[in-house]
């Protein structure tokens, strides 16, 4: 499994992905620097205010979209010139190849989240935020947002394995991501809509006593449930795919 992951990383590393990894955190940084946080100061920790401003473009749009782009990237070179048959004729199981690609995307998303953390910190320093840096941001918002992408990455990997073209999985992604702007404003739909979860999990709520910013039940049922659904869907599709 580790050797497959290494091989996947080797193939991806050579395909100029670093620009893509930087886009999101830079968008966040821009939103943070441009934020009008000073007027509302005093009501709550200024870091949280900054986070809310930065999260809006980042977690609503960029984070869900980038999962699809990364998934397409790790499959693109397999589709191009018979890569699938090359890999799958090696002594590997399809399940492990699928898992390796999945884990690789998750690691990249985690890396993006860490860059985003750096962007939050950078924007705060630039703004001269004086409040103490709340460590909860790190594990609640950054790690929470990461966990929220698990089902999205699974679905996008499924779509990317399926479709040869770059556009089809991306279209699927956009079609589901855009309504999350509406969904997150709805108390009924919001908690159950997978594409709204990155925003929900990164949004600093008042302390609920849960580990993340959303209730446990929501984490397990919505994120866990959709993760299982999408991952198994992709896994079984890949098992039967003729290459």
């Amino acid at each position: 499994m580790l050797s497959i992951l290494k091989s996947e990383w080797f193939k991806l590393r050579k395909s100029k992905i670093f620009g893509i990894l930087l886009v999101g955190p830079l968008i966040g940084l821009g939103a943070g620097i441009g934020a009008d946080a000073v007027e509302t100061a005093g009501a709550m920790n200024e870091w949280y205010m900054l986070l809310i401003y930065m999260n809006l473009p980042y977690s609503v749009l960029f984070l869900p979209l980038v999962t699809g782009v990364l998934a397409s990237l790790v499959c693109r070179y397999e589709h191009q010139s018979g890569g699938w048959k090359q890999v799958l004729a090696l002594p590997v199981t399809r399940g492990k190849v699928f898992a390796a690609k999945y884990v690789l995307i998750l690691l990249l998303v985690l890396f993006i989240q860490l860059l985003y953390l750096a962007a939050i910190f950078g924007a705060g320093l630039y703004k001269g935020v004086a409040d103490p840096f709340p460590a909860a941001i790190i594990w609640k918002s950054i790690l929470g947002g990461w966990v929220a992408t698990f089902p999205l990455v699974a679905l996008q990997l499924w779509m990317s394995v399926w479709f040869k073209s770059f556009a089809a999985p991306f279209a699927v992604n956009v079609v589901f991501t855009l309504p999350s702007i509406l969904a997150m404003n709805s108390e009924k739909v919001g908690p159950y809509y997978p594409w709204a979860q990155p925003f929900a999990m990164m949004y600093p709520a008042t302390d609920t006593g849960d580990i993340f910013f959303i209730p446990w039940e929501q984490l397990l049922t919505v994120i866990g449930g959709f993760f299982l659904l999408f991952y198994l869907g992709g896994y079984f599709y890949f098992q039967r795919k003729a290459v």
């Binding site: 193939k11 050579k14 395909s15 191009q80 010139s81 018979g82 890569g83 048959k85 090359q86 004729a89």
Partner: peptide, 13 residues
């Protein structure tokens, strides 16, 4: 060891 149909390769490598 195998070579199936048209050669398989990664063009960016």
């Amino acid at each position: 060891g195998s070579l199936v149909e048209s050669p398989s390769y990664y063009p960016h490598l």
